[in-house]
Design a protein around this nucleic acid. Structure first.
Lengths: 351, 351
DNA sequence: GTTAGCACTCAACACTCGTGAGTGCTAACA
DNA sequence: TGTTAGCACTCACGAGTGTTGAGTGCTAAC
């Protein structure tokens, strides 16, 4: 017993209906609403087969059928293969995601907002990481006695800042001349290399040795294992409109996930550097997410850094809509971060 | 029929029990658990009186009584008058809120975290505003062709930054010299005055006129009516543990409030410049918040700016705990922002 | 003024039972 | 051999009913 064309069409209809209503769908519904030219009895036989094949579940004997994770997987794979996802929402995403933004946080906050309002699911946007961006300028701004703000501008125009303390007093002009020297030495290097370079400068610049040591230790700490990154989240309240979240316990587990940004980031970031990732229900391997699906897409920066955008929703998610929105948004972000060369990747790999 | 001592003690017991259990409390519970030396029948009579006086509500005839908003009001006023609130949690707040922080956002995020984890309610922290902080330094950092980061350091060491675009090209050294001139002119003035001052400089600095005009317009926009401020929120998921939020509809309205930071900020900011504000249930005048209480406290910065910290919880909130935590946190923040002179205010006004 | 006693109320829970949506099976049909 | 009509069967769901227990109000005695 294999998967013939008709079985697939019926399965498709069941998935469509279930995505719409969130209720088990019966044979009669299919034969009427999706006029297949078949009676409910025939559909019933096919559904029985589909259940045996593992594509359908039955909550209890006198209820309709529900698509299994395996069914969604088939559905999504088909979706990706036939490439129906592209460009349906291009225009509206672009319309919403207009206007120039410069601050990294604003960009990703806004992106999360747009994704969630277009899909009605929970959206998560991670800032770019991976390949270290290259330093373009480093400037020190005096903040108070014994502390300065380090403003780091990278080649993709993205700003990172940290306040560092240092011993002793340094006047503004000296700080500026140090800034100039540092920019000259560090420009074109990655954050990770910066620590070493500064260390090598220590010998040459006796008078500000203590300051540089302090700076170096802070920079290496920053570029180290886990720089606590800002994670943008949008649309958590939208999830409550779905019957899946009628239970407060589920809401609680979702909400506490959203509150621990680190965990959320690690879940979203698990994408094997592919354009799209779709993890359906238990596929994610995360017990709390067993009845959620996670869809992610990546975007690139000029420097070759990768960022991730993602959507979390019920397994009966409108995958095609989500994929289309994420695809377009990925392009938009890549464009914004100046990675024009990589634009095509998104649609190509998605096919 | 007035409020004698005994009535008050009974009311107190009812409130205490209801805060603990969230269930209507009956006469027998009071006479046993809070040994008053009175039988349940006597308590019953007194409770009947208290209901007539408007301090108790009865969900239905065969259930116990629930404190009314008026009862909580009496309770809180008594709490504030007797000054029981101070110092109970001083040590643990201080212990959690340790470590030096410089970035405004980190400070208020952390403060919200600490408040929510100590009270188990939803915590909101607004950055200082009101009296404009005075500019100490202004520095421009080149970010890319045609855009620069404006780093503004205020007298309380707090940093604000915005990226501004400008027409044409300006090299780094010129930017620095402009920075120096601007710092010289603007130092000691408020953000609001800055726009005008820069306008007056336009005549003197022909070559960078376009740049300055751009800067001026951005600054005045920033200091204008509503600079979208970062609002820190913590502990939203904690609210779901309370039976008051067993209903998903309530969770939804709370969550969407949390997501629209502007609205949240305006609710929290409604404090008449008093050390503590307690709004119980309908007192807030906000329909969605009719069965919540909102407690706020203020903190001050060296420049005389005021910030607000607040807690949102069910009406049966542990007011004394919340007031104590907010009081201490207000002090800590004031200290951090260098307003030593104002420290005493908090405890004084609270009494 | 306080308390014991008693009748009364009513939410909450358990139980029953009818209803309807949906299935699986069988037999007839094309 | 595939499709369909018919029928018995299952079971969640909701309405209706009875029971229980927490709690009250009232009255009469202390």
């Amino acid at each position: 017993m294999g998967m013939d064309e008709r079985k697939y069409r019926i399965l498709q209809a069941i998935i469509d209906d279930y995505i719409l209503t969130a209720e088990p769908v019966g044979s009669r519904t299919i034969s009427r609403k999706y006029d297949m030219g078949l009676s409910s009895a025939t559909i019933r036989n096919e559904m029985s087969d589909l259940e045996e094949l593992g594509y359908l579940d039955q909550p209890h004997v006198s209820a309709g059928r529900i698509p299994s994770a395996k069914a969604y997987r088939l559905y999504v794979d088909q979706l990706l293969k036939t490439g129906k996802i592209r460009s349906a929402d291009d225009e509206s995403v672009k319309a919403h995601f207009a206007g120039r933004m410069h601050q990294m946080e604003d960009v990703i906050d806004h992106a999360a907002q747009v994704i969630s309002s277009m899909t009605n699911y929970l959206a998560v946007v991670l800032p770019p990481s991976g390949k270290q961006p290259l330093i373009r300028t480093l400037q020190l701004v005096p903040v108070g006695p014994g502390s300065a703000l380090v403003v780091l501008v990278t080649d993709s125009g993205i700003i990172r800042d940290t306040v560092i303390p240092y011993p002793g007093q340094i006047d503004n002009d000296t700080l500026y001349s140090i800034s100039r020297q540092l920019t000259e030495e560090l420009s074109g290097h990655s954050l990770q290399e910066a620590g070493g370079i500064i260390a090598s400068m220590l010998g040459r610049m006796h008078e500000n040795e203590a300051f540089l040591a302090s700076l170096s230790s802070f920079l290496s700490e920053r570029s180290g294992n886990a720089p606590r990154r800002h994670v943008a989240v949008g649309g958590a309240s939208k999830m409550l409109t779905y019957p899946e979240y009628a239970d407060v316990e589920k809401v609680k587990s979702l909400l506490s996930l959203v509150e621990t940004r680190d965990k959320l980031a690690s879940i979203i970031a698990q994408n094997g550097n592919v354009a799209f990732t779709v993890r359906i229900g238990p596929e994610s391997g995360i017990p709390e997410m067993a009845d959620c699906s996670i869809v992610t897409a990546t975007y690139s920066t000029q420097a070759g850094g990768k960022g991730t955008i993602g959507v979390i929703g019920p397994t009966r998610m409108r995958y095609s809509k989500v994929l289309s929105v994420l695809g377009t948004m990925g392009q938009q972000l890549s464009e914004l971060f100046g990675a024009q060369g990589e634009l095509e990747d998104h649609t190509e790999e998605g096919r």
